[in-house]
Simulated scan of single mutants.
Amino acid sequence: MPRLTLFRLFRPLLAASLMGAALAASAGGCDRSADPLPPGPQRVLFVGNSFLHGHAAPVLRYHADRVTDLNGTGYGGVPALFKQLADDAGLQVEVSSELVSGQTLRFHADRKLPLIAGQRWDAVVLQENSLLDPHHPGDAGAFVAAAGRIEAAVHERHAGARVYLLETWARADQVYRTPGGRWAGQTLEAMQADLRAGYAQAARAGCIAGVLPVGDATLRAVQDGVASRNPDGPIDDGKLRLWGSDRHHLSAWGSYLEALVIFGRLTGRDPASLGADSRAGRDLGLSAAQVEAAQAVASRQLRAGP
């Protein structure tokens, strides 16, 4: 058979082979490592909404001057709490945020990608809308696609960056206060299972270093008897308030727990090593016992895995 004919026959196979090799090389070039960030200065970016910037004082504007807010809105929030925890542990981190209240990752992918991918980051934390999809609660399809777009843009700029997904928490208002809603009349466990599955799906679909199990940690606080299960139910003496007054966002204690889980997973440090005198906890007005309770829950969750 003439060589030209052979080439024409095998050209589609060759092209497919080369494309597959290119995709494999691209996937292999990014960092899927679940290990802590390496020593030395680290640049960390947080992308999400009010589940990261916080809903009200003392979290919303907490040390806003120590976080580079790419949107210029002046939020401190959980990124600033993470910065304080890192400082307390003697770690060098520069923290930036790109946070817009109530929005999805699709919004950030559509409108904020130049801000997100315009700089070189060592770690990027992505947080999706608390319902996964506000129009179709519990559906992770749009989340998976948007996280993939952002992750690819980040890795195009710096293949060694680690991209994490921050798993959000079951909302008491959705379970106890939203008649006809997706999780109405169910349990916190049921909603958290849907969120966990959605984040796991998004992690499998892209070059993701790991899921930060914040939602699982908040559920653990309830299951371990540290925090109240139903903020509208009978008062549980001695138990902590996990959610704020809207039964949606976390309380100051819950936000401290959120920051501890992020800190522990990204740095590899045991949150309990920060001790009862944790500066971030004191700044939020928490007692030593409340600080230690949050640290213990975070430690147990991180030892348990994602």
Rank of each mutant, 00 (worst) to 15 (best):
R106T: 11
V125H: 03
W243G: 03
L212M: 14
L99D: 09
D283K: 09
S245G: 11
M19S: 10
E258P: 02
S251Y: 10
N230G: 01
Y256I: 00
G29Q: 14
F107N: 14
F51C: 06
Q84V: 01
R282W: 14
L105T: 08
G102Y: 02
A16H: 07
A109L: 05
R204L: 15
L6A: 12
A56N: 07
L113H: 06
R177D: 15
S26N: 09
G118Y: 09
L166V: 06
D139Y: 01
A152E: 00
A203Q: 12
W253I: 05
D232V: 06
E156T: 13
G215L: 11
G76A: 05
L242G: 08
L131M: 12
L52H: 04
L91Y: 01
A298L: 12
L242E: 11
V59D: 02
A89S: 09
H53Y: 04
L131S: 10
G206W: 07
I235A: 11
A209P: 02
S97C: 08
P38H: 05
A25N: 00
V214Y: 05
A147T: 04
G102C: 01
R182A: 07
G118D: 15
N129H: 13
Y199S: 13
V124G: 15
D270Y: 03
L9F: 10
D224C: 09
A217H: 02
G160I: 00
D270F: 05
R61T: 07
A145E: 03
R220F: 12
R229H: 00
R149T: 14
L250A: 13
A304K: 13
P114E: 10
I262R: 10
